[in-house]
Design a protein around this nucleic acid. Structure first.
Lengths: 101, 101
DNA sequence: TACATTTATCGTAATTTTGCGATTAAAACA
DNA sequence: TGTTTTAATCGCAAAATTACGATAAATGTA
């Protein structure tokens, strides 16, 4: 990044795979996803009870999962419900299947 | 890590999945793996020609892939040959398949 | 023997990640 | 209305990641 000052361009699918992989690269985030898969959705409080990390830390991990596109959120008055984003989930599945072909 | 000073213990499969995901969480490393998959193996120099990053940076990425267990290395006099570690590759495939079930 | 090739490693800087406690904001409830 | 519940965000510190150039070590070649 010194000589050219240009960022390398990677193709779209590689970037998506990197983003999904990064989402999965922390064990707490894997546990959160597993919980959501099993229970279809969750609230932040469920995960706080499930994983021994501070509420703010759990919130941050969930935010990252959301940024990756693997989950989305629905406002339910005072609570926020988080669920797997199944279309991106399928996309991720396809990308991982493709590389581990 | 302040109150308890104890690290959370995650189960073995979750940790492995996190490690494999981290390996895949950088686009350059994905490209390296794709190159190796196609060409069965590679030398550092091949990747330096393939991806516009400094040789030291490529070396670092390859080292990380090796640490993750997804690749291994064989010394060939002055060159080092890197190849996919197929048994761990299969293991990774199974873990990703399992979570994206 | 001198030089070239190949890769690893060191030192460094910039950025990102991880984790926490404290605080805030909004809705629900008594 | 005051209190509780739920979750987001801020500020901060420690650690890890990413990238580079410089250098070193080992082998091959002229």
């Amino acid at each position: 990044m010194t000589l050219s000052e240009e960022k390398i361009i990677y193709d779209e699918r590689i970037m998506k795979l990197a983003v999904f992989s990064k989402a999965l690269s922390h064990p707490a985030r894997i546990k959160i996803l597993q919980y959501m898969e099993k229970n279809s959705c969750c609230y932040v409080g469920d995960i706080v009870k499930f994983i021994p990390l501070a509420q703010s830390t759990i919130s941050q991990h969930i935010k990252e999962l959301k940024t990756s596109g693997l989950i989305n959120s629905f406002q339910e008055s005072q609570k926020t419900k988080y669920c797997i984003n199944w279309s991106n989930w399928q996309y991720a599945k396809a990308l991982f299947n493709n590389i581990f072909r």
